[in-house]
Simulated assay, not measured.
Amino acid sequence: MIEGMPISKIARRLAWLWLLIIIAFFMVPIAYLLATSFKTPDDVLQGYLLPGNTTLENYPAAFRHVPIASMIRNSTLIAVLSGIITLVITVPATYAMVKLGFLRRVIPNITLASYAAPPIIALVPLFFLMQMIGLIDTIPGLALVYGIMNIPVAFWLLRSFVKDIPDDIDEAAWVDGAGYWLTLRRIVLPLLWPGIIATALICIILSYNELLFASAMTFKDTSRTITVGMSLFQGERLVNFGQMAAGSFAGMLPVYVIAVFFQRYLVGGLTQGSVK
């Protein structure tokens, strides 16, 4: 007992206090972004959390200044295509390395080591490669870059899910005459489906939020992503912070929709990849 209060009750209250601090840490920047989207230029310069003079003009002005709607569509399409490319490559490769022992030590080390390198190292060679094959400044080209770039993340997440599938299931299928591809398609994929969804969602979010390659490989509004569009609010002498906040808030909505509706898969994928 401490001052008439059980220790367990104090610990519970401290846990709730710590939880509120964490929630505030993540929610205050979003709240400030939303508040800034309703501020006038003078209110932005004041730096207060809440706007003094609320205005709705930033949202229509932002959509007039930058084609936000088309850029959100581009980002979503590129992210989904890149997720498909990543899974098509990574699912059979992960199964081969984990279950069949195909280059089990060499390929995983190379794959994960490549992800640790700064992305800007690959920017110049990828730029000229995309230019040579005619995919520069195109949605398929950027989706291909993202799809290959996210392979290490997808492998790291899928490896834990594949390991959780008992070896007896694969061996029983092989004994019955099923080949590796048939076993993967008919037996493993249904069991691996939660991991595939979680991996796809994480890779889609990573692709949606990417800026470096998108800014270097896209030049027209028909292929630019929303992350590149946010940089277009930078003027020669000033930054339209109110319009930028409005555009940023509109651009982040698809990611938050994914996070809210698919939270169970996202949490499962992240924890599965971190504890195995």
Rank of each mutant, 00 (worst) to 15 (best):
Gly195Tyr: 01
Phe102Gly: 05
Thr76Gly: 11
Glu236His: 07
Pro125Ile: 04
Pro108Ala: 08
Ala154Gln: 07
Asp164Phe: 03
Phe25Lys: 11
Gln46Asp: 12
Ala154Arg: 13
Gly179Lys: 01
Leu189Pro: 07
Leu56Gly: 06
Ala62His: 01
Leu191Ala: 13
Phe63His: 12
Ala214Glu: 08
Ile169Phe: 04
Phe128Val: 04
Asp137His: 07
Ile133Val: 15
Leu158Thr: 03
Val88Lys: 01
Ile169Asp: 02
Met5Pro: 04
Arg159Phe: 05
Tyr208Lys: 02
Gly269Tyr: 11
Ala69Met: 07
Leu206Asn: 14
Trp174Ser: 01
Ile22Ser: 03
Val88Leu: 06
Gly242Phe: 05
Ala198Tyr: 03
Gly229Asn: 05
Thr76Gln: 10
Thr86Gln: 09
Trp181Val: 15
Tyr48Ile: 14
Ile169Arg: 10
Arg185Ser: 11
Phe262Met: 15
Leu232Thr: 10
Ala69His: 05
Asn58Gln: 01
Leu192Met: 08
Glu171Ala: 11
Thr138Gln: 00
Ser160Leu: 02
Phe219Thr: 15
Asn150Cys: 11
Gln263Met: 14
Gly83Ile: 01
Ala173Glu: 08
Gly273Pro: 13
Arg237Lys: 10
Tyr48Gln: 08
Val66Trp: 05
Arg13Glu: 14
Leu33Glu: 01
Met97Asp: 02
Ile226Met: 11
Ile89Gln: 02
Pro125Gln: 07
Gly269Asn: 04
Ile10Asp: 08
Gln234Leu: 08
Trp18Lys: 03
Ser248Trp: 04
Glu171Ile: 03
Thr199Ser: 09
Ala116Arg: 06
Ala96Lys: 06
Ala61Asn: 06
Gly47Gln: 04
Asp221Ser: 03
Trp181Ile: 12
Val98Lys: 09
Ile110Val: 10
Arg105Lys: 10
Met130Pro: 06
Tyr59Met: 08
Tyr95Ile: 13
Ala200Tyr: 13
Leu129Asn: 00
Ile107Val: 13
Val188Phe: 15
Ser82Lys: 06
Trp193Val: 10
Leu191Asp: 06
Thr36His: 00
Gln243Trp: 13
Trp193Arg: 13
Phe219Met: 09
Ala200Asp: 08
Phe63Tyr: 13
Leu45Trp: 04
Gly83Met: 05
Ser207Tyr: 07
Glu57Leu: 15
Thr76Leu: 08
Val188Lys: 09
Leu103Phe: 13
Arg159Ser: 10
Ala15Asp: 13
Leu211Phe: 11
Ala11Glu: 14
Tyr256Asp: 06
Leu270Gly: 04
Gly195Asn: 05
Arg264Trp: 03
Arg13Gly: 07
Ile136Pro: 09
Lys163Asp: 00
Thr222Met: 00
Phe102Ser: 04
Leu211Trp: 14
Thr55Ser: 10
Ala172Pro: 02
Pro190Gly: 13
Pro118Met: 00
Val66Ile: 08
Met27Ser: 09
Arg264Glu: 15
Phe25Gly: 14
Gly4Ser: 08
Ala122Cys: 01
Asn109His: 06
Leu212Met: 09
Val188Cys: 10
Gly52Cys: 00
Pro152Thr: 10
Val88Ser: 07
Ile139Pro: 09
Tyr180Met: 12
Pro92Met: 05
Ala245Leu: 02
Ser37Phe: 12
Gly247Val: 03
Ile72Cys: 10
Leu17Tyr: 05
Ser114Ala: 00
Leu135Gln: 12
Met130Leu: 14
Leu17Lys: 08
Val145Arg: 03
Tyr265Glu: 05
Ser70Ile: 04
Met252Gln: 11
Ala113Arg: 01
